[in-house]
């Protein structure tokens, strides 16, 4: 079991539940409306989006017409295949160096903590890292990031609270260029995706990186809280529209929430999950593994 598997240990417990549920469901109902309704509810219970759950159930129904469904375990396997196919629609990009990673997301999803973890992740790979405190809005955000930078022993670029976040980005990128830093990670202020002015601010930061450092690979990751519900898709769509996302970082997976909405993100929006985070320790981050995710969610 890899690190990802360990992170998912909590989720695994629920795994048996779903398989058992399906087995019981099957012996009780056979394949009728009630069966499909409950199947849909199992998926929605994991925060898979309602439309995606309906789609998946339709696919199961199509298989049933062929008369191939014999028991609950078959349904479980079928669901796994369907989900795996959907997740594979959004392949994970290779990370090239030097690179700039910008984390965006709504308030309170864990962007600053994730930056601390990512800084550690890259230094463990022997890469040089600079973090940029471009959240100049939230009280004490740059102090919080400074603590993480200390822990991970990486350089931090910060300005005063209330200053222009794009200026922080400019400074961080210029100094990374001069010092030949492998990875620049930009923290941004949490913003609700419906606020146009704040989304424009993000676009500006995006432009600064593209203009000032075209030779670096530029990745824009959306940080999503695993406890989020149906709103996750709306968030991803809005941020993707603003800065063209390259991937998702899924945080707070140590609870009992399953983050089933990532199925929609991959299937509908073709945005892959790159990292998953749990806990508050620096090491609590791992690359996403779609097979293990499917195992865990079902």
């Amino acid at each position: 079991m890899g690190l990802f598997g360990k992170l998912f240990a909590a989720l695994k417990k629920t795994k048996d539940n779903v398989a058992t549920k399906l087995r019981m469901l099957f012996s009780k109902n056979k394949l009728g409306d009630e069966f499909y309704d409950e199947l849909e509810e199992i998926l929605i219970g994991a925060d898979v989006s309602v439309t995606m759950a309906e789609e998946v159930v339709e696919q199961v129904k199509a298989e049933a017409i062929d008369g191939r469904i014999k028991d609950g375990d078959f349904v479980t396997d079928l669901l796994k295949d369907i989900m795996q196919d959907i997740l594979d629609e959004a392949p994970m990009p290779e990370i090239n160096y030097p690179c700039v990673i910008m984390l965006v997301g709504v308030n309170g999803v864990g962007k600053t903590t994730t930056i601390g973890k990512l800084a550690h992740y890259f230094t463990a790979k022997k890469k040089s890292v600079t973090v940029a405190a471009a959240d100049t809005f939230r009280a004490a955000a740059s102090d919080q990031l400074s603590v993480w930078a200390d822990r991970a022993k990486v350089r931090i670029v910060k300005h005063e609270e209330g200053s222009d976040p794009s200026a922080v980005v400019y400074d961080a990128v210029s100094s990374a260029k001069a010092k030949k830093t492998d990875v620049v990670i930009i923290d941004t202020a949490g913003r609700l995706h419906v606020k146009d002015n704040l989304m424009n601010e993000l676009k500006k930061m995006n432009r600064v990186v593209e203009r000032e450092y075209p030779e670096a690979s530029f990745y824009k990751f959306l940080v999503l809280d695993a406890t989020t519900g149906q709103n996750a898709v709306s968030q991803a769509r809005a941020f993707d529209g603003a800065v063209d996302l390259d991937g998702i970082v899924l945080t707070k997976l140590d609870g009992t929430a399953k983050g089933g909405f990532v199925i929609s993100l991959c299937g509908d929006l073709h945005i892959p999950v790159i990292f998953v985070g749990t806990g508050e320790k620096m090491e609590d981050i791992a690359l996403f593994n779609s097979e293990e995710f499917v195992e865990a969610i079902l």
Partner: peptide, 9 residues
């Protein structure tokens, strides 16, 4: 509670 919370709420 975050109003965006899903089934976990």
């Amino acid at each position: 509670v975050d109003a965006m919370t899903g089934q976990e709420a």
